[in-house]
Amino acid sequence: MTFCRIAYYNHQNDQIMNEILSIEPYSEKTARVRILNPVIADKFEPGHFVIVKFQSDGHRIPFSIISSDTQEGSIDIIIHRADGLDEILAMIRTGESLPDLLGPLGRPADIAQNSRILFFGDGAGVVPLLPLIKSAKEKGCSVKAVLSEHSSRTQCLMSEIQRDCDAVVTVSDDNLLESAMNLVSTESIDKVIMSGPTLIMKRLALETKKRGIPADCVLNMLMIDGIGLCGICRVIVDGERKQTCTDGPVFDAHKVDFDQMFNRQRLFV
């Protein structure tokens, strides 16, 4: 397994594509990686993801696009050193080019102008929320966030979240849900957007449904091709089979069958 050093040359733009421009560590475990790809940078909308291959014979791994810089022609992804990604973080170097980068995939999230949104994130689930929080801010929304405290992933991203949020509540794991529900019931919220462990999303979905508050969830599923061919990322939404890669990754949380998803997700936790 050697890292592919051969750059992908784009004849159209006379430009080397997929070069790693920078690797900015947030913590020992997490780093933000900036990749040159002007085409994807131009097309990026919050909610989109890319499929990355770090080695030409490696796995295809989906990553949320965190942000894009159209001037520089780059996109940012966040790699967390877990779930078999340790090796990758140790292996990649600035200046090298990724053998494969496919995107932008998925459907952009639906965030209404000037609405009141509560973001709920736990663990690695915070990562895909970042672009959505930023987008909500830009759309003039009132943005609040409830995040779990212990997660190292949230700790290292906190400054970024605080920048774009009107209020951030960090809570310990024990009363994560209670805190979220307190906020939901005491303040007027137009929509909850959640991303985190399936069981917590399931409970929050139930609670919001009871109170009649719309809720979206960002699903994190294993993928292979990312274009709807393999069916590995299938979920049941509103009784229908949907694919996270082509129909998601954002779904109406009230309609997702979390139990079935939980059972499938054990495949790759």
């Binding site: 292979i224 091709d225 061919l229 393999c230 069916g231 590995i232 299938r234 049941i236 079935q260 059972n263 499938r264 054990r266 495949l267």
Partner: peptide, 14 residues
Amino acid sequence: NLPGVMTANEYLIR
């Protein structure tokens, strides 16, 4: 949707 049931695409692509 049980783990262990897959499509031929998933099986063959993998």
